[in-house]
Design a protein around this nucleic acid. Structure first.
Lengths: 79, 79
DNA sequence: GTGTGACTTATAGTCCGTG
DNA sequence: ACACGGACTATAAGTCACA
């Protein structure tokens, strides 16, 4: 799979998961101690995010990182 | 899980997988168009690697990224 | 509550070596 | 074949004003 494609898909997965939890970008950003606009750009797939930040987002979403990645790679749902 | 812990575990997984394929760091680096010293430091868990580069490494190791991540997070084996 | 462009600072990542 | 370092350059991190 193309790298930039994965990062866009991952953004969608993150957004879906956030909305499923009823959180705003601002609330998610607070949970992982990142900036609101940064989280927004990640969701839009604009950032080549580092592993440390993805882990923090996954934690804030109460999800395992590998499940987020799998959902992005395989199109599977996130629990 | 702590972010830096995951990156160290991921390094070990990458190394194990590379050795299982009988590749040197240099050969792996060539496969994903990254520098040999960089791949070495990733394996040592010293790098906060970006998602694009992890994907390239996963591809070069002929593995799905989510399987690498899962192996690092859960301690499961990589096929 | 979110999208976006511009921006500075931090660090990812390269390239030259050495043991 | 790998670890490690120094000196770079490229790019991610992180923030802001405004729409």
């Amino acid at each position: 799979m193309d790298e930039t494609l994965l990062q866009r898909k991952l953004g969608h997965i993150i957004r879906d998961r956030r909305l499923a939890l009823g959180l705003s970008q601002e609330e998610l950003a607070d949970r992982c101690a990142l900036h609101r606009t940064y989280v927004g750009s990640v969701e839009r797939g604009e950032r080549n995010i580092s592993i440390q930040n993805i882990v923090r987002i996954a934690n804030a979403l109460d999800t395992r990182l590998w499940e987020l990645i799998r959902a992005a790679e395989e199109g599977a749902g996130v629990p």
